[in-house]
Nucleic acid binder design. Sequence first.
DNA 1: TGCAGTGTTGCTTC
DNA 2: CGAAGCAACACTGC
Length: 314
Amino acid sequence: MMGIIAYDILPHMPELPEVQTTVDGINTLVKNKVISDIWTDLNNSSARFGDCIKNPKFFTQFKNRLIGKKIIGASRRAKNILIDVIDGKDKETILIHMKMTGHIMYGSYMYDAEKNHWYPKAGQIALEDPFNRFLHLVITFTNGKQLVLSDVRKFAKVTLVESYTKEFSHLGPEPLEKEFTSAVFLKQITRFPNKSIKTSLMDQRLISGIGNIYSDEILHVARVLPNHSVKNVSDEQLSAIYKHIKPVLSKGVKFGGDSTSDYRNIYGERGKFQGKHAVYRRTGQKCARKGCGGIILRKVINGRSAHYCPLCQK
DNA sequence: TGCAGTGTTGCTTC
DNA sequence: CGAAGCAACACTGC
């Protein structure tokens, strides 16, 4: 390694599999822990951010309402993390959207008062990680350990919610739920006929949780070019896309998410899905489909980079 | 040295 | 209603 820290800043937010991996990690490691203190350095912004911890007034409330409460479990809706906490009958839900570069870890961290900065204590995976420099929210528990938010670009949104339904009313169905039938998919995906199929797959109003990586991967296995308008995608192609949504997302969860960039799981470890890409960020390389021989191309669609094989995707 | 690229959401404007 | 453009932010690579 020669002391060189080799890492790329390739910002892409956690998508469904990454968020699910984090939620599973919280349920494994952080359940029943009682909050004793909360620190942030994001609460120095103007009030224009509304009810989130970037608003200093809100952060004070956030802290007061959560200290003394116990984590009872985490769940996921779209790319949002929901953490339920309780103190007697007094229940709150912490809502975290990791946006571009956020990720959450649990371990032992120490505070440097002079620098107003937190560091992982020795002997932890996170210590080796270049992203440990960007801790912006630290929740300390009565056992002395911390749940931390690392976020290079500080886009993550952290708040408290009372009503899930109100908060998430604009979101499309969850693709891994059994209610996500072929009929539901067809109804949703055809809502904006003039948009590209890739853009529609990533539209959170149509389907929840799919972003740039998984939309590219789904379209590759379904053999559909990303730039086609939805109205020009055949019924056969739409059913192929539907057929592959669940397996591709489940594969992402199975491999612990994608760490092409900054994503880390609750232990500070990388996921392994980046080693499984057929197309995403494989521009100029050979198509992963056996016997295809195509070379992966990259094209900007609606301001986002799409990766695809011009030979086997039609 | 400076600026485009990186990806997502939500707000503004039309 | 919708689409398109941009801001939120940090850092890299050219």
